[in-house]
Nucleic acid binder design. Structure first.
Length: 497
RNA sequence: GUCCCCGUCGUCUAGUGGUUAGGACACCGCCCUUUCACGGCGGCAACACGGGUUCGAUCCCCGUCGGGGAUGCCA
């Protein structure tokens, strides 16, 4: 049995946790958890311009929301820290010295402007700029001394071989090979003394004993250069696995124009973390065959395997995410649903109105519990829930104008609703008003007496009471709303014909 | 331009050198029902194209096309 794997998620703190990053983090986490390995969080803040505290906090918050817990990280330490690259500058410096000592790294005095200028020239001459022309590669000791004496700042580049090839066996993509000829001498330490991503990533992955580097396939072309760094340092590279990217619904790069792209936005849209995690797990991976797709994190861990991770890019499907989300909501028990719905009431200041005198539910929570029970599986979205239950808490509720016009604003409806209101006033009292069945009987009686089918009365009543053409069972609604309020709304509706 | 990756229903995917190419989302229809929803049942719909290899290719090879990525002193 091979030793427990050590994997990592290494975001740069330059924005929110994007779904692509979240999926990368998720697959690393799934692999670690399914193999009893370690999941490390490392922050790659080597870009002094773009790294921010807010992004750092947002990324950690996003991961916590999703439930991706890490075993080692900047906030909780570990045996291989620090886990913030800006705190590891000495380490990178030492390794750079090692490379400089044996001539594998050299100083490059070309400024960004120099490089741009030469690239433009090459292009103008009809040629192609391959990335770096190796100008400082052959600088003599005297030339270097002179440039330094002149105060010219310099970066460090890795001297890469011109012949041969670099290859590796990717866990997901199988054998990948690059001709060294196309690999350029890229910068490993910038003029500001900070390492580039390429260098810091290699040094840290090695020192932190990362066994598997699982990342997006946008890193495929960085890998050969990184392998060259491992070789220059005399180290054995870890195993690499490049996962396919997540694209927008139109197969183009996923961007804000497609809708939400950061996990924080999905949170704001009523997506449950368990649902988000579930949906993301299905992008590029599958439990196989006819296995059910709606799963808890534990179930996913139990079935996860890197071997089953696919290699083609996936389009993000908001519809399916919503479906998975509704399945997760429906799978919740009463307490779980209540916990989800209560905050929505609080946001709106909705409370049980004592005047409604609802039997057996004297607190807002108990009342909401009964409302949700009546709703049953109709409660499948946090976005629509307020509309679905608002009329239970306020007289100023959402009204579907189209439904109102069709079912309520007619003379027939007006007549029938008045008949019903009268009958409720005379016929129902006391304990009877606490049984949906009593409302049921009375409504049908009224319809019969008026000579119409029950549905002719039920439809207008539903819209009159709830403002919508769809709701929980209307007799339960009457019972939960209370007799006085029911009669009041029926009369108000009858008057609008 | 160059290098690299990818290509099964509209979407996520399962799958095999010989299958009626399976499931899920979406969509459509029917049933249930006081409507909607839920649920149940059914339907539509795919192996990108062209060459090979083979008795036989969705599957193996080559090419084309399409999509994506890289080409930074960003990560």
């Amino acid at each position: 049995m091979s030793p427990a794997p050590r994997v990592r998620f290494a975001p740069s703190p330059t924005g929110h946790l994007h779904v692509g990053g979240a999926r990368t983090a998720l697959f690393n986490w799934l692999y670690a958890r399914s193999q009893q390995g370690a999941f490390v969080l490392r922050i790659e803040d080597t870009d002094q311009e773009r790294s921010t505290e807010e992004s750092y906090a947002a990324i950690l918050a996003g991961m916590r929301w999703l439930g991706l817990d890490w075993d080692e990280g900047p906030d909780r330490g570990g045996d291989f820290g620090p886990y913030l690259q800006s705190l590891r500058l000495d380490t990178y410096g030492e390794h750079l010295q090692q490379l400089a000592a044996d001539g594998q790294a050299y100083k490059c005095f070309c400024s960004a402007e120099d490089l741009e200028g030469r690239a433009a020239e090459a292009k103008a001459a009809g040629g192609v700029w391959e990335g770096y022309d190796g100008k400082c590669r052959g600088l003599t000791g005297e030339e270097v001394t002179a440039l330094e004496a002149a105060g010219k700042p310099h970066a460090w580049r890795l001297r890469t071989p011109d012949e041969g090839s670099t290859f590796w066996y990717d866990i997901i993509l199988d054998k990948l090979e690059f001709q060294n000829e196309v690999l350029v001498d890229r910068v490993i330490v910038k003029a500001d003394g900070f390492p580039t991503y390429q260098f810091a990533c290699v040094v840290d992955d090695h020192l932190m004993e990362i066994s598997h580097v699982l990342r997006g396939d946008d890193h495929v072309s960085n890998t050969p250069f990184q392998i060259l760094i491992y070789q220059a340092l005399g180290w054995k590279p870890p195993k690499f696995g490049h996962m396919p990217m997540i694209l927008g619904p139109d197969k183009k790069r996923l961007s804000k124009r497609h809708g939400a792209t950061s996990v924080q936005e999905f949170q704001g849209q009523g997506i449950l973390p368990a649902a988000m995690l579930n949906y993301l797990s299905l992008l590029g991976w599958s439990p196989g065959g006819n296995a059910k797709e709606v799963m808890s994190a534990q179930e996913i861990i139990g079935k996860f395997s890197l071997k089953k991770v696919g290699s083609s890019a996936a389009a993000f499907d908001y519809d399916k995410l919503n479906h998975i989300n509704s399945e997760h909501i429906k799978a919740l028990d009463a307490a779980g649903r209540l916990a989800l719905a209560m905050p929505l009431l609080e946001e709106r200041g909705w409370r049980l109105d004592p005047a409604w005198l609802v039997h057996g539910a004297d607190t807002t929570e108990a009342y909401l519990g009964r409302v949700l029970a009546t709703l049953g599986n109709r409660f499948s979205s946090l976005v629509t829930l307020p509309e679905q239950i608002g009329f239970f808490f306020s007289d100023d509720f959402f009204v579907d104008q189209e439904a109102w016009a069709e079912h309520v604003s007619t003379s027939e409806a007006s007549t029938l609703l008045t008949i019903l209101a009268d009958a409720l006033e005379k016929g129902l009292a006391g304990d009877q008003a606490h049984a949906a069945g009593a409302f049921d009987d009375l409504v049908r009686e009224c319809a019969e007496q008026a000579g119409v089918k029950a549905g002719r009365l039920i439809h207008p009543a539903r819209v009159a009471l709830t403002g919508q053409s769809r709701s929980a069972g209307i007799f339960e609604v009457m019972e939960l709303m209370g007799l006085p309020r029911t009669i009041e709304r029926l009369r108000r509706a009858a008057a609008t014909a």
